[in-house]
Amino acid sequence: MISVADLVKDPIIPGNYYAADAYVQGDFETGLIENRKGARLIALPDILLQAIYAGLDQEVGQACGVVLFNCGRWWGKNFYRRFVEEVSEYYRRPLAEMEMVEFLQCLKECWKTHGWGTIDLDVSFYQQGFLVVKTWDSPFAAAAPKNTGQPQCAAEAGILESFFSQLTGRNLHCVQTACETLGATNNLFVLGLRERVEPAKAWLQEGQDHDTIMERLCRTQAA
């Protein structure tokens, strides 16, 4: 016998913490935006993102990706801390006790509400030790130079590497294997232990596509 009185004993039944209208609060007078916990948010205009890419290209040339990747890692470190704090406080459960689907929904909504596009996880390579992350409508890709022959979402790759390394407690590495700037419909990122995903970089240089890279990574893994 299910007692509804017991079900509603806890007065709060949580919904979507990252609903954009609830999460992002703005004040016209001060010109500040903050999240629903009162932490400051910053808005990056497209022109600034474009300028970051152009400026880095001018200053450091080919090392642009490395710089952005390291910025992303730093960003991801703090992003993970905040994410865990906010989600476990709102849903009143530590992240480790949340169901996978709830965690994933939170991450998807969080990513979208922060304006980083849409994110999804592909866990079909889980057995082989790889996690594939798919993003699309990325503002970073939109601002980056197009058709350079190399994926351009280094900042996101850094964020993902840092985020999932902390989540899993393993030192993971992230390689982007498809990019919207190269005409792909999605940005694809492969996460796994460094020595296992590292070969993907060389195959990427050879011009191999995501599916081929995944096939080779899994084959190397099985061998």
């Binding site: 919904g15 979507n16 609903a19 609830a22 998807k108 909504e109």
Partner: peptide, 9 residues
């Protein structure tokens, strides 16, 4: 926004 986008999946 507050519920369905989260609950559907």
């Amino acid at each position: 926004h507050r519920l369905l986008e989260w609950l559907t999946e």
